[in-house]
């Protein structure tokens, strides 16, 4: 049903309560001033009754309006969920269809090279072998996608450990740093040394940090900087990965955490990294958010409860 129609159906007009009632009450009060006391008292009572009646009607209308709005919200959430599922399946279809398309073609080519005699020309043997290799490669690509999806679906309970945050993230920073150096990108650490220990799933959080650092590396051109910062904000621990890369265009902002959303070349990224990270941080009871001014880099923020 069109949301607008729910609100518009069976709506009596508002004017009896907003216009007529105050007018009647006002007139009654004015008359009561001029009238003898008994009549004035009756008129004042009448004015009061009109006001209370209108107020009650208006309150009821407001409440039913709110109820309808809540109902609408629920439907909207449901339709958003359905849209997300739709987007997910279309993403899976696309990611699997592309390697399947290559496999289909390689099989067609190999069959053709085998010819009607069933025996390929010796000159074509290398090509047949190359086709088989390629089929293997594409199957591997599909396998990687399905395995990551299974990881996605697997709900492993986090194992919570007390650990200094720096111990969790520093190894990932070192790893990213070696690669960053080769590309002329600097990694700057801005750790808050006074942070208390966190209680979290250490390897899962490492996975998130490494993923954010990898994305930052891919986005940052030579001479750029990636900042890895930690700080405390009220009852949360904040980890920030800032880069000076190309940033995220506003139209992509809403999609970056969607499974299969990627701006990389085909076969280069599965588009699952950020959505997996988002899932992990949520499971750890925190939030993963992004801010970006296009052209001025992006900041990904992990907020974990203390």
């Amino acid at each position: 049903m069109n949301p607008a129609t729910i609100l518009e159906n069976h709506r009596p007009p508002l004017w009896p309560h907003t216009l007529l009632a105050p007018l009647l009450a006002g007139a009654a009060v004015l008359l009561a001033l001029a009238a003898p006391p008994v009549v004035g008292f009756a008129l004042a009572l009448f004015a009061g009754a009109v006001c209370i009646g209108s107020a009650l009607t208006l309150a009821r209308r407001v409440r039913s309006g709110e109820r309808q709005l809540r109902e609408l919200d629920k439907r909207l959430l449901q339709s958003q969920k359905l849209a997300a599922i739709g987007e997910l399946s279309s993403g899976i279809a696309h990611e699997i269809n592309n390697p399947l398309a290559i496999i289909t073609q390689e099989i067609d080519l190999a069959r053709e090279l085998f010819g009607p005699s069933g025996c390929p020309d010796p000159a074509d043997l290398a090509e047949v072998r190359d086709s088989l290799d390629q089929i293997g490669k594409q199957v591997e690509r599909c396998r990687l996608i399905t395995h990551k999806l299974l990881n996605f679906a697997r709900k492993m309970e986090p194992v919570l450990q007390e650990e200094a945050l720096e111990h969790v993230i520093e190894d990932m920073a070192i790893l990213a740093e070696r690669e960053a150096k080769g590309r002329g990108v600097a990694i700057v650490r801005a750790y808050d040394q006074t942070l208390p220990t966190v209680r979290t799933d250490v390897p899962l959080l490492r996975q998130v940090i490494l993923n954010l650092l990898t994305n930052a590396l891919a986005a940052t051109p030579q001479g750029g900087t990636i900042t890895l910062a930690t700080r405390r904000s009220d009852d949360q621990i904040i980890i920030e990965v800032r880069d000076t890369g190309c940033g995220i265009p506003p139209e992509n902002m809403a999609k970056i955490f969607n499974p299969f959303f990627t701006t990389k070349e085909p076969g280069k990224g599965t588009g699952l990294g950020l959505s997996l990270s988002h899932g992990i941080v949520t499971r750890l009871g925190g939030t993963l958010t992004a801010q970006s001014t296009p052209g001025h880099g992006a900041t990904f923020t992990v907020a974990l409860p203390l």
Binding site: H167, D171, I174, A176, V202, P203, R206, L210, N211
Partner: peptide, 29 residues
């Protein structure tokens, strides 16, 4: 050092991915 290999290692369930040389005290910890 390869961030790509590190990502794979961590997503396959490694506890940590550490570059050599590593201080023995740290490794023990």
């Amino acid at each position: 050092a390869s961030v790509e290999a590190g990502m794979q290692g961590m997503s396959l369930g490694a506890y940590d991915y550490v570059l050599k040389p590593v201080d023995f005290g740290e490794l023990l910890e």
